[in-house]
C-alpha cells in the first residue's frame, strides 16, 4: 500500500503539492508513481523563471522502464528546482515527498489550490 500523506494535495496524474512557509508550493511525484515507474534514472526539470500553466507538461522523469511527463498541478512561475536530482534521480524513489521534490512555484492564483485532490480522494483513486 503506497503512502499518501494527509497534509499534501494531489492530482489525478500522481503529482503532489505542498504549501511552504514562504507561500510558494513544492511539486513532486507520489509514492505510488515512483513505485509504478521503478528505479528513476533521469530527470528533466523546467528552468527557474519559466511561466507555466496548470496542466502544462513541464518536466520529465524517466525510469529504467519508461519516460513519464510531469504536468504542472498549478499555474505560476518556477522559483526553484531540485538540482540534487540531476546527479541522483534515485532520491525520488527513496524519498518522494521529501528530498525527492521536483520544483517550486510562485502561484499566479493561490485559490487554484482548491482544484486539487485531498489525500483521502487521491487515496481512493488508487484503490
Amino acid at each position: 500500500m503506497s503512502n499518501v500523506p494527509e497534509e499534501l494535495r494531489y492530482t489525478e496524474s500522481h503529482e503532489w503539492v505542498s504549501t511552504e512557509n514562504d507561500g510558494t508550493v513544492r511539486v513532486g511525484i507520489t509514492d505510488h508513481a515512483q513505485e509504478a515507474l521503478g528505479d528513476l534514472v533521469f530527470v528533466e526539470l523546467p528552468a527557474i523563471g519559466d511561466q507555466i500553466d496548470q496542466g502544462d507538461s513541464c518536466a520529465v522523469v524517466e525510469s529504467v522502464k519508461a519516460a513519464s511527463d510531469i504536468y504542472s498541478p498549478l499555474a505560476g512561475e518556477v522559483v526553484a528546482i531540485n538540482e540534487d536530482l540531476e546527479g541522483d534521480p534515485g532520491i525520488i524513489n527513496n524519498d518522494p515527498y521529501g528530498d525527492g521534490w521536483l520544483f517550486a512555484l510562485e502561484l499566479s492564483d493561490s485559490s487554484d489550490l482548491d482544484d486539487l485532490l485531498d489525500a483521502e480522494t487521491y487515496a481512493q483513486q488508487l484503490d
Partner: peptide
C-alpha cells in the same frame, strides 16, 4: 515478475 524492488 518485472522486479522485486529495485531493478538496478
Amino acid at each position: 515478475p518485472i522486479n522485486y524492488g529495485s531493478q538496478i
